[in-house]
Computed example of a mutant assay.
Amino acid sequence: MSVRILQFGATGQLAREVLDRAGNGVEVTALSRAEADLTDVDAIRRAILEAGDIDLVVNAAAYTAVDKAEAEPDLAYAVNARAPEAMARACQARGVPMVHISTDMVFSGAKDGAYLETDAPAPLHVYGASKLVGEQAVLANCDRALVGRVTWLFSAYGQNFLQIMLRLARSQPVLKVVDDQRGRATASGDVAAFLLDQAERLARAPAGAPEWGLLHLVGPTVATRTEMAKALFDLAGLSPQIEPVPTSAFPTPARRALNAELDSSRLKAVFGVELRPWRAALADVVAKLNAMQGAAA
């Protein structure tokens, strides 16, 4: 069976990884924000209801400016809450299932261990709150919806922690890196591969099947920001001095959770899948970065 995916998002790191890996019976049509304005619920509905034959809708688009959202709550809620709700309603009307990507930031970080899908959310900021409302709206309005929460995505594309660290390491001999935050860092490419690998199964799964609902789409191993930076620099052949500092050393408009760790046991139980440990995935991402830089030279 070939699977036709309509994807909201074309330039973000996850969206680009999906496009890179599409094929083998999975066809992806990606809509940019110019093609489907995420602040226009009517445009979103039309994009789904008037699309050709589609088997699955994936929302890989979001307002991700965590700190800026504190000053732009209306825009954050429009993109992260009202847009997914409009997608879910249109998917339900067409009888098409939906995958929506969310975040660990729906949690406060106060828990000692990893968060389960059944744990109560308690976001610390506007971004997390807007994503939580989006989750709830998707699940309430589409009976074949999967909401995948991700943590600390990294990729050769887009703006992420890896890209920032590499840029700073090439210009500063000493880097202050937060050392009291932890999470299950996950390669965007691994999440994209999961979505494509499971596309046919999701397209076929009926309402009420175990595939639907909340799912933590993260790798199995925990990292701190400092551990990730050190591993990155080793792989990249860089040697800046790293000064571990607490989160409080970098005051931000949006308060950051210290524990961003999500439990991935449901991923393995339902889908029989375990994403790669972050160190293995990181090596591939650095190799891809090197190849991209070589091709551009």
Rank of each mutant, 00 (worst) to 15 (best):
R4N: 11
G12F: 12
E17W: 02
E17K: 10
V18D: 00
R21E: 08
N24D: 15
V26Q: 08
A30W: 09
A36Y: 03
D37A: 13
A43G: 14
R46F: 01
I48H: 05
L49P: 02
L49A: 12
G52K: 07
D53I: 00
D53N: 09
L56F: 09
V57K: 06
A60F: 04
Y63K: 06
K68I: 02
P73R: 07
D74W: 06
A76H: 08
Y77D: 10
R82W: 04
A86E: 06
R89H: 00
A93C: 01
V99C: 08
I101A: 04
T103S: 15
D104S: 13
D104A: 13
D104G: 11
D112S: 13
D112Y: 01
L116Q: 13
D119Y: 03
A120Y: 01
H125W: 04
V126A: 06
V126M: 07
S130C: 05
K131W: 07
Q136K: 12
A140C: 08
D143M: 07
L146G: 07
G148E: 02
T151H: 12
S155W: 11
A156C: 10
Y157K: 06
M165I: 00
R167K: 13
A169P: 03
P173C: 03
V174W: 01
V178H: 08
T186E: 07
A187V: 04
S188G: 14
G189V: 13
D190Q: 14
Q198G: 02
A199R: 11
E200W: 10
G213K: 13
L214C: 02
L214E: 02
L214G: 03
M228F: 15
A231F: 00
A231Q: 05
S239T: 12
S239L: 02
Q241W: 00
T247F: 00
S248M: 02
P251G: 04
N259W: 03
D263L: 07
S264E: 11
R266Q: 12
L267K: 09
V273I: 12
E274R: 14
E274Y: 02
L275A: 06
P277N: 11
P277E: 10
P277H: 12
A281P: 05
V285I: 14
V286W: 05
A297P: 02
